[in-house]
């Protein structure tokens, strides 16, 4: 049942996506689209509209995307064991052995 449901879901998404691709010329907001396509070369001197959007029109998005990467790495640094933890483990083991003797 779950398999059938997920297969149907994937097929529905597929049809939706291809349907939008077939009819996208009408549906996009014409104002923004036209402005960017017409003016991005003079505005940003980029040859590629994607680069001009990422680095100029929508710069806040790019900034916070970089911030998300930093947050992920800070989390990793905080929660994963480090070299110093391993050394502490070793020294505790040695202490226990010495106290045994």
């Amino acid at each position: 049942m779950r398999v059938v449901a997920s297969v149907l879901f994937v097929l529905a998404v597929f049809l939706l996506v291809t349907g939008i691709t077939a009819s996208n010329r009408v549906e996009l907001d014409p104002l923004m689209y036209d402005y960017i396509v017409r003016n991005f070369e003079e505005d940003t001197h980029a040859k590629n509209a994607v680069a001009s959007i990422l680095l100029n029109y929508r710069m806040y998005d790019t900034m916070f995307e970089a911030l998300i990467l930093l947050a992920a790495i800070i989390g990793m640094n905080q929660f994963l064991p480090r070299e110093s933890d391993m050394r502490r483990h070793e020294s505790r083991k040695q202490q226990m052995e010495e106290s045994d003797e």
């Binding site: 779950r2 398999v3 997920s6 994937v10 998404v13 597929f14 996506v17 291809t18």
Partner: peptide, 18 residues
């Protein structure tokens, strides 16, 4: 393109159901 998209869908289902 259509074939690749359908294969992606197939593998998406496989990921969930393996």
């Amino acid at each position: 393109e259509t074939g690749t998209l359908l294969l992606m869908g197939l593998f998406a289902v496989l990921v969930i159901h393996s």
